[in-house]
């Protein structure tokens, strides 16, 4: 029991250390829905970095993919009386009550890739429908709108699901292309294994029947790319197209060993920066929300990155 008290004491010291040095600067709360996903981390890290440039106090929270935790973290930030909130990959309907509370407490909320809510200022996003359509059309172009493709889907995530729907829309218009194999990823902690098992089976089983592979996000594409390399394929044998962006995928597009053909890079850094900049303009500089973003969305177009322009983005 004494050990326990010691720990509690340590917690107290830790807490005291954390609050010291707090000034009366603008207090921004940033919540990422699931930091273990790279896109969520990129979003919150960029927002945090930008806020620090302004000299703001920033606090980053991670909801670990739990809806209830996310709701509680928003509630706690409201109780903390933060001056503003930026939420990465939040959800408008589920957290309607919390958004309403924030609005009632006079706390401006800007969301990123979350969907619009009447209680938040606006949502910054690339428009997943556009992103999905771009990737699908590009992939079909690389195989001259003919033959088979493999698809790696992910239904549990709204954005990834929309990308899949857009693939289906593009396919509907191009019946000469058929999906010869499709695997849907389960949302588990070991999703990497799930993708690896599912796709390695399809790659073997359907060998020779496909010229292109579509993946709902880049993380999946990396695993597929490694499988293809292991199976002895060379660049150009198949085209592999996915969505998200980031240094790893750019490196693969550039690499002569990788099958990675193109990605539609979601400009998360631009989006997060824009969210924080808008927050400053509205909450600090006193600009009207309508002057910044008239409607519910601030669209930040995604950029298709392939061999042509990869050097521009690769650091």
């Amino acid at each position: 029991m004494n050990r326990f008290k010691t720990l509690m004491g340590a917690a107290a010291v830790l807490g005291a250390a954390l609050i010291s040095g707090q000034a009366a600067a603008f207090d921004l709360g940033i919540v990422a829905f699931q930091m273990s996903a790279e896109t969520h981390a990129r979003c919150s890290n960029t927002a945090e970095a930008r806020a620090k440039e302004f000299g703001w106090d920033t606090q980053v929270l991670n909801s670990n993919g739990s809806l209830q935790t996310h709701a509680e973290q928003i509630e706690n930030l409201i109780q903390k009386k933060v001056d503003g909130m930026v939420l990465c990959m939040s959800k408008p309907v589920q957290f309607d009550a919390q958004f309403q509370d924030a609005k009632d407490a006079g706390i401006p909320v800007i969301t990123i890739s979350s969907g619009s809510s009447p209680h938040t200022l606006f949502d910054v996003q690339p428009n997943e429908f556009v992103v999905g359509a771009e990737a699908a059309v590009y992939l079909l172009g690389t195989i001259d709108f003919e033959g088979g493709i493999l698809a790696q889907r992910f239904e549990s995530n709204a954005g990834a699901r929309i990308r899949g729907i857009m693939l289906d829309v593009v396919l509907a218009e191009n019946p000469t292309v058929t999906v010869v194999g499709s695997h849907s990823m389960a949302r588990t902690k070991s999703w990497q294994d799930d993708v690896r098992n599912g796709m390695s089976a399809l790659i073997l089983q359907k060998a020779g029947q496909y010229k292109g592979i579509w993946a709902s996000f880049d993380g999946q594409a990396f695993i597929i790319d490694d499988l293809l390399i292991e199976s002895g394929m060379k660049k150009g044998d198949v085209s592999l197209v996915s969505i998200d962006g980031g240094q790893e995928v750019f490196r693969r597009i550039k690499s002569p060993d990788s099958m990675m053909t193109a990605t539609v890079a979601v400009p998360l850094e631009d989006m997060a920066t824009a969210a924080v900049d808008s927050m400053k303009a509205i909450a600090v500089d006193g600009k009207k929300k309508e002057e910044m973003v008239a409607g519910p969305y601030l669209f930040k177009p995604a950029i298709l990155v392939d061999a042509n322009n990869v050097d521009q983005y690769l650091n």
């Binding site: 720990l7 917690a11 954390l18 609050i19 980053v60 929270l61 991670n62 706690n76 109780q79 903390k80």
Partner: peptide, 22 residues
């Protein structure tokens, strides 16, 4: 504890660490 850590301005990883210790 988790509410208090937010109000104290602690970053997200502190919460996991504290829970593990408990």
């Amino acid at each position: 504890l988790s509410n208090g850590l937010v109000l104290l301005g602690a970053q997200y990883y502190i919460q996991d660490i504290m829970l593990g210790i408990i």
